[in-house]
Amino acid sequence: MKLRSTLGACLGALTLVLSLSGSAQAAEGNFHYKYVDGHGQEQYATLHDPHSGKCINLYAVGDDDDLPGYGPHNQTDTPVTVYVNANCSGPEWRLKANGAPAKDTLEVRSVRFDAP
Rank of each mutant, 00 (worst) to 15 (best):
N87F: 04
L16K: 06
Q25I: 11
H39G: 14
K54T: 15
A100H: 07
L47A: 02
L16F: 09
G99V: 07
T76W: 05
L11N: 00
V80M: 00
D104V: 07
P91H: 14
K96N: 12
Y33H: 06
P68V: 06
D37I: 08
N85F: 05
A27V: 00
D114P: 01
T105Y: 15
H51L: 14
G69C: 07
Y33G: 04
C88W: 03
S21W: 14
S89N: 13
V80C: 04
D65N: 15
R94C: 05
G90S: 09
V17Y: 06
C88Q: 07
L106F: 04
G69Y: 00
L16N: 02
R112H: 06
G53P: 05
P116E: 15
A45Y: 10
A97G: 08
E28F: 15
E42Y: 08
P50E: 08
H73M: 15
C55A: 01
T76G: 00
A60V: 09
H32Y: 15
N85V: 08
V111I: 07
Y33Q: 02
V82Y: 02
Y59P: 12
L47M: 08
Q75S: 08
D64Q: 05
T6I: 11
L11F: 04
D65L: 12
N74D: 10
D63W: 10
K2G: 15
H51S: 13
L67E: 13
P50I: 04
E28Q: 15
W93D: 13
G38W: 06
A24P: 09
C55V: 04
D104P: 08
L14V: 11
T105C: 11
N74R: 07
Y44A: 14
I56V: 13
A115G: 10
Q41K: 15
G12P: 07
G71V: 03
S21I: 15
Y70M: 05
A97H: 05
P72Y: 06
L95C: 08
L47R: 06
T15E: 08
G8I: 11
R109A: 01
D63K: 14
A86H: 05
K103I: 14
F113M: 06
L67I: 12
T46A: 11
H48G: 09
A27S: 00
G62C: 03
A27Y: 05
R94E: 14
H73W: 15
L3M: 12
Y59I: 12
T46P: 06
P91M: 12
D65S: 15
T6A: 12
G29E: 00
K2Q: 13
G99K: 07
V84L: 10
S19P: 00
G90C: 01
H39E: 15
L3C: 13
P72L: 09
A24N: 03
T15R: 01
A13G: 01
